[in-house]
Amino acid sequence: MKTQEELTEIVRDHFSDMGEIATLYVQVYESSLESLVGGVIFEDGRHYTFVYENEDLVYE
């Protein structure tokens, strides 16, 4: 089982391919040991929310 830090790094690596990240945040109250819920804001102003669970990243 991966730690929350490892899950965060996986998500950061994925989004870094889309541009320069200004902020990546995790909603700790919605996340667990198996899933990571949060959002990412890019330097150009784009903002996505995401759920990473079971090695699957869903964002909008």
Rank of each mutant, 00 (worst) to 15 (best):
V51D: 03
H14C: 06
H47G: 05
L24I: 15
F15T: 01
V11Y: 01
E43S: 11
E43T: 11
V51M: 10
Y59H: 07
Y25I: 06
Y25V: 05
S32H: 11
E55T: 14
T8F: 09
I10M: 09
E43Y: 12
L57A: 03
L33V: 13
M18H: 09
E53R: 12
L33M: 14
R12K: 15
F50P: 00
S31P: 15
L24V: 10
V37C: 07
T3P: 05
M18P: 01
A22Y: 08
I41Y: 12
V58R: 15
Y29E: 07
G19N: 02
V26E: 02
V58M: 11
Y48L: 10
D56E: 09
Y48H: 03
H47D: 03
D13G: 13
I10S: 06
E30G: 10
T3I: 04
E60C: 10
V51Y: 09
E30F: 04
G45I: 01
E53I: 12
S35Y: 13
T23H: 08
L7F: 04
S35L: 06
T23L: 13
V58A: 15
M1E: 11
T3A: 04
M1R: 04
T3F: 04
V40M: 02
D13M: 13
T49R: 14
Y48M: 07
R12N: 05
F42C: 02
E53Y: 12
E60P: 03
Y29S: 10
S35V: 08
M1Y: 11
E9F: 12
S31G: 11
E30C: 08
M18N: 03
L7W: 04
Y52C: 04
H47C: 05
V26T: 07
I41C: 06
D44H: 02
V26N: 03
V11N: 01
V58L: 11
Y59G: 03
A22V: 08
D17W: 13
E60I: 15
G38P: 00
L24M: 11
S35N: 07
S16F: 06
Y48T: 02
E6H: 09
L36H: 01
Q27S: 15
D44C: 03
S32I: 10
L36R: 00
G45F: 03
D56S: 15
V40C: 05
E5L: 09
D13V: 15
S35P: 04
L33C: 07
S32V: 09
E9V: 13
K2D: 04
D13L: 10
V37F: 10
L36D: 00
Q4G: 05
L33Y: 07
E34Q: 13
G39A: 09
N54Y: 12
Y52D: 00
E6Q: 08
I10N: 06
E55A: 14
E30W: 05
Q4C: 06
Y48N: 01
D44W: 02
D56N: 13
V28P: 07
E5N: 07
M18F: 14
E34C: 06
E60N: 15
E53H: 09
S31W: 08
L7K: 03
R46D: 04
L57M: 08
D44V: 01
E9H: 14
L7H: 03
F50Q: 00
F42R: 00
D13F: 12
S35A: 08
V28G: 13
D44Y: 01
S35W: 06
Y25W: 09
F50L: 01
E6I: 08
E9R: 13
I41Q: 05
G19T: 02
G39Y: 07
G45M: 04
V37Q: 08
E5S: 07
L57N: 02
I41P: 00
Y25S: 04
I21Q: 02
T49H: 10
Y25P: 00
D17G: 14
M1F: 14
R12S: 06
E60Y: 15
L33R: 12
F42T: 02
V51S: 13
V37L: 07
R12E: 04
S32L: 11
S32P: 10
K2M: 09
D13H: 15
E5F: 07
I21T: 02
V51P: 00
K2C: 06
F42I: 02
I10V: 12
G38T: 01
V28W: 06
E43W: 10
L33E: 09
D44A: 02
E43N: 15
F15N: 01
G39S: 08
V11Q: 00
E9T: 14
F15G: 00
V58Y: 07
Y48D: 01
V11A: 05
Y48G: 02
R12D: 02
D56G: 14
I41L: 05
K2G: 06
D56Q: 14
T3C: 05
K2V: 07
S16Y: 06
L57G: 01
Y59T: 09
V28F: 07
H14W: 14
V51T: 14
E55K: 09
V28R: 10
T8W: 08
G45Q: 05
A22C: 06
V26Q: 03
Y48P: 00
S35H: 11
D44E: 02
L36P: 02
Y52A: 03
I41K: 11
L24H: 02
D56T: 13
E30N: 10
G19P: 02
G38D: 00
E34K: 10
L7I: 15
V28D: 12
L57C: 04
V11H: 01
I10Y: 07
D56V: 14
R46K: 13
E5K: 08
V51I: 08
S31N: 12
G19V: 02
L36E: 00
V51H: 13
E55G: 10
V26P: 02
S16I: 10
A22Q: 13
E60W: 10
E43Q: 12
S32A: 14
F42A: 01
L24K: 00
T49K: 15
A22P: 02
E30M: 07
R46T: 10
L36K: 01
T49A: 08
V37A: 07
E6Y: 09
R12P: 01
F15H: 00
D17V: 13
M1P: 13
F50I: 01
G19C: 03
E20Q: 13
S31F: 13
E6D: 05
E43V: 14
E43F: 14
V26S: 04
R12T: 06
T23P: 01
R12I: 09
Y48Q: 02
V11R: 00
G45W: 03
L7P: 01
S32E: 09
V40Q: 00
S32R: 06
E30K: 04
D13Q: 11
V26H: 03
I41A: 04
Y59L: 11
T3Q: 05
